[in-house]
Amino acid sequence: MARYRLSIHISPRRGILDPQGQAVSDALHSLGFPEVRDVRVGRYLVAEVDAATPDAARAQATAMCEKLLANPVTEDFAIAAVEPA
C-alpha cells in the first residue's frame, strides 16, 4: 500500500445554469477583463488515500464521486491528479 493524493474537480454540468459563474463573469467584465468568456464555479477537493496502485486510487476516487461527492443530475467530475502523497 502507498499513500496517494487525489485532486478532484467538480463543476456544474454544461447546460446547467450557473448563476455563481455568471456573477463572477459579470464582475470580471466590469473590472476590465472583457475577454472573459465563460466562468463556471465548482469545487476542488484534495484527499489522501491508501491504495495499492495509482490506478486503484483513481478507481476509489471515481467511486467516491459517483456515490457522494458529485450529484450526477447537476455536476460533472474529473480526477485531475493522482500523485504520491
Binding site: 446547467i16 445554469l17 448563476p19 455563481q20 456573477a23 450529484n71 443530475v73 447537476t74
Partner: peptide, 17 residues
C-alpha cells in the same frame, strides 16, 4: 429526497444567489 432517489431531479442554488 432527491439525493436519496425518492424523487427525480435536484435543487440548485437560487438563481439570485
Amino acid at each position: 429526497a432527491c439525493e436519496a432517489g425518492l424523487l427525480p431531479g435536484a435543487l440548485l442554488r437560487n438563481a439570485s444567489l
